Simulated assay, not measured.
Amino acid sequence: MAYSGNHAVASEAHSSHHADEGHHDQEALRTMGFWIFLITDCILFGTLFATFVVLNGNTAGGPAGAELFEMPGVIAETFILLTSSFTSGLAVLAMNRGDRKGLISWLAVTVVLGAAFISLEISEFVHLVHEGAAISTSAYWSAFYTLVGTHGLHVSVGLVWMLAIMIQLGRHGISSVTRRKVNVVSLYWHFLDVVWIFVFTIVYLLEVM
């Protein structure tokens, strides 16, 4: 009977070990899937940047970016997004300390900053359209709205993603699953920050210099 009991305990421990390994493998696969997604996004943005550079100056006699860009607003957008990247890093640090409240708080700050960035971008688009620079005005403006708008769409997706993670953290706390999700969304957010630096430099700064 003792042997049977020990055998049952050993079998249960063995099954639990395999379950943990399976869970770990699933999390690793999901993380790898994110990296594949990020690589495809790099290709996407690389294509959009190349298109913008090729079409730069093709304004069809309409207004150029240098005439309409309001750089104080663009600089404010850049500062806000850079700050949100910093706060998302603070969220990861809070998670690594096991501070769920701090983690959710810093994610909330990041969401607020990201929403402010999107609001400024929408205001910029409205201003440009009002000044006669719509997406159909010329090839230049088509490339501009496609590139900058695609980045803005990615930021909007990131905001929804963070809100969903905050809800999960409130319900389930910090676990291996939520830890992976926070790490992944933070990497995604830093990626968008890097893309915006290229947008700011190539689309705006070089245009007005």
Rank of each mutant, 00 (worst) to 15 (best):
A50E: 06
L103Q: 08
N58M: 12
S105K: 14
S11R: 15
E124I: 04
G22C: 06
L147I: 01
T31D: 12
E21T: 03
Y140D: 06
I167L: 06
G89I: 00
T146E: 07
K101D: 12
S156R: 04
A143F: 03
L169D: 01
I197R: 07
H151Y: 09
T59Q: 09
G170T: 02
I122H: 15
E77S: 11
L113F: 07
G5T: 10
R179W: 06
G5W: 13
E77I: 08
L81I: 11
V157P: 00
H23Y: 02
I165E: 02
F200D: 06
S15D: 11
V195C: 06
F79Y: 09
G5L: 13
M209K: 00
G149A: 03
V111G: 06
Y140S: 08
F34P: 07
L206V: 12
A60C: 01
L90H: 05
G114V: 05
A164I: 04
T78M: 10
H17G: 11
T47C: 01
G46M: 00
V111I: 14
Y188H: 14
F198M: 04
H14I: 10
S138M: 02
L153C: 00
R179I: 02
V194A: 11
T87P: 03
V184M: 14
V182P: 02
A134F: 09
Y145E: 08
L29E: 10
E77H: 06
T47I: 04
F144Y: 15
Y188E: 10
T201D: 12
F69V: 14
G173S: 05
G149E: 04
S186I: 01
Y145P: 07
V195M: 00
L192C: 08
C42F: 10
V74R: 07
L120C: 09
I104F: 06
V109E: 15
M32E: 14
M71G: 06
L82T: 11
L159A: 05
V194M: 04
T83G: 10
G62I: 04
S119M: 10
W141G: 03
E70R: 12
A164T: 01
I135Q: 08
A116T: 07
F45P: 04
H127S: 13
S175T: 15
E27I: 14
L48G: 03
L153A: 09
R30F: 08
H17N: 12
N96V: 03
V160S: 08
T51Y: 05
D20N: 09
T110L: 02
W161N: 04
I122N: 13
L38H: 14
L113I: 01
L48I: 02
V126D: 14
G132D: 11
F34N: 08
G46H: 00
L55T: 06
G170S: 08
E121N: 14
S136N: 13
G158I: 00
G57N: 07
I75E: 15
V177F: 05
A28F: 09
N56M: 07
D99L: 05
I43W: 01
R100C: 07
A64V: 00
